[in-house]
C-alpha cells in the first residue's frame, strides 16, 4: 500500500478563511433586501448550528444518532413553555433547555455507550420516537399536535424581534458559539479521545482513554447545543408543534446535513447546511416537497457511497491543488 502523508490545511489559513466568511456574513444585511432570502439565510444558519451540534457526538465520536430531533425539541419546548406558563424570558429558558437536554443526552450516552454500529443507531432512533410520542400525547403540557404559538410580547428582552435581521445576528451568534465549542473540542484532549474511540475503541481503552466519560461528555454537549438551537428556532418561527420539532424526519435531516458537508470536521456541517438547505428550499419551491426529498435521498446515497468524507473533502482537495499550482508557479518564476 502507498504510504500517504496527511496534508493539513494550515490552521492559520483556515482561521483567516473563517474570519473572512464571518465578516461577510456580518455585512450581508448591507446587500440583501429581499425578505425571502433573509429568511432562508436564518434557516441555513440554524441548520448549520444544529448539524454542528450533531457532529460533536456523531462525527467526532462516531455515534451516528438518529434521535437528535428530541434534543432540539426539548430546547424549543422548554424555552417556549417557560415563557408561556411562567413568563420567563427565552434568554433564560434557552439555558434551562440546554441543561435539561444535556442531562437527557448524558442519560442516553450512559445507556448506549456500549452499542455499536446499527444497534446504536436503532437505540437513538427509538429514543427519538419515545420523545416524539410523549410530545404528541402529553397534551396537558405540550398541547400535542395543536402546537404552541409564541405571542409577540415584550420584544428583544424576550428574544422576539420585529426586524428579521435581528434573527440573522442571533442565529449567527449561535453558530459562532457552536462552531467555537466544536473547534475547541476537536483540538482538546477530549477531541483526541473521541476520535481514538471512533477509530478503535479497544486500542483507545488500552491507552488509558475512559470510554464512558468521554462519550457521555460528548453526548451531553451535543444535546445541550442542539437544545439551544431549538430555543432560537422557536423564537424565530414563533410556532412549534411535534412535526416541526421532534419528528423522525428531522433527526434524519440533521444527520444528512452533517454527512453531506463532511462529518468529523469542524466546518463540514456548516458547509453541509449551506448546500443542503438552499437546495431543498429551491426544489421545494420549484418542483414540490416530494421531489426535493427525492433529491435528498439521492444525495445521501451518492455521498455515503462515493464521497463518505463529504463536500468539505472536495474543498480541501481544491485548496491543496491550488496551493500546489501556486507553489509550482513560484518555483518556475524563481
Amino acid at each position: 500500500m502507498k504510504i500517504v502523508d496527511s496534508t493539513p490545511i494550515s490552521p492559520a489559513a483556515a482561521r483567516i478563511t473563517a474570519a473572512a466568511v464571518l465578516v461577510l456574513l456580518l455585512l450581508l444585511p448591507l446587500f440583501i433586501r429581499n425578505i425571502y432570502w433573509i429568511d432562508l439565510g436564518v434557516t441555513v444558519l440554524i441548520w448549520a448550528s444544529l448539524a454542528t451540534a450533531w457532529n460533536i457526538s456523531g462525527g467526532f465520536a462516531g455515534g451516528l444518532s438518529l434521535g437528535h430531533a428530541a434534543f432540539f425539541g426539548v430546547g424549543a419546548y422548554t424555552s417556549t413553555l417557560l415563557f408561556l406558563r411562567l413568563g420567563i424570558t427565552p434568554w433564560i429558558g434557552i439555558f434551562v433547555g440546554a441543561v435539561l437536554a444535556g442531562l437527557l443526552g448524558a442519560l442516553l450516552g450512559v445507556i448506549t455507550f456500549r452499542l455499536k454500529g446499527p444497534f446504536f443507531v436503532l437505540a437513538t432512533l427509538a429514543f427519538g420516537i419515545v420523545i416524539h410520542i410523549i410530545n404528541v400525547n402529553w397534551r396537558g403540557l405540550t398541547r400535542g399536535a395543536a402546537g404552541l404559538l409564541l405571542p409577540f410580547r415584550g420584544g428583544p428582552q424576550n428574544m422576539l424581534f420585529l426586524n428579521l435581521w435581528a434573527y440573522w445576528y442571533l442565529a449567527l451568534g449561535l453558530l459562532v458559539l457552536t462552531v467555537g465549542i466544536s473547534a475547541a473540542i476537536e483540538r482538546s484532549r477530549l477531541g483526541y479521545y473521541l476520535v481514538a474511540l471512533r477509530e478503535d475503541e479497544d486500542a483507545a481503552r488500552s491507552l488509558g482513554v475512559r470510554v464512558v466519560r468521554s462519550k457521555v461528555v460528548a453526548a451531553a454537549t451535543s444535546a445541550a447545543l442542539a437544545a439551544c438551537v431549538g430555543s432560537v428556532y422557536a423564537a424565530f418561527i414563533q410556532y412549534i408543534d411535534p412535526d416541526s420539532t421532534t419528528q423522525f424526519e428531522l433527526s434524519v435531516q440533521i444527520a444528512l446535513v452533517a454527512i453531506v458537508g463532511g462529518m468529523g470536521t469542524t466546518f463540514g456541517p456548516v458547509l453541509g447546511a449551506a448546500i443542503v438547505i438552499p437546495l431543498g428550499e429551491i426544489l421545494r419551491a420549484r418542483v414540490g416537497g416530494g421531489a426535493a426529498l427525492v433529491v435528498y435521498g439521492l444525495l445521501l446515497m451518492v455521498i455515503v457511497l462515493a464521497a463518505p468524507n463529504g463536500a468539505i473533502a472536495g474543498v480541501r482537495l481544491l485548496v491543496l491543488r491550488f496551493r500546489r499550482l501556486i507553489q509550482s508557479r513560484g518555483a518556475t518564476d524563481a
Binding site: 476520535v195 477509530e199 478503535d200
Partner: peptide, 29 residues
C-alpha cells in the same frame, strides 16, 4: 483504561492503529 493508568501498557497482535489519524496523533493519544 484504569489498568493502563496504573502502569500496564500493551500492544495488540492484530494491530489496531487509529487508522485515520497521523502516526504522531496516534502516539499523542
Amino acid at each position: 483504561a484504569d489498568r493502563n493508568r496504573l502502569g500496564i501498557g500493551r500492544t495488540f497482535q492484530v494491530v489496531k492503529p487509529f487508522g485515520g489519524m497521523t502516526v504522531l496523533d496516534n502516539v499523542v493519544v
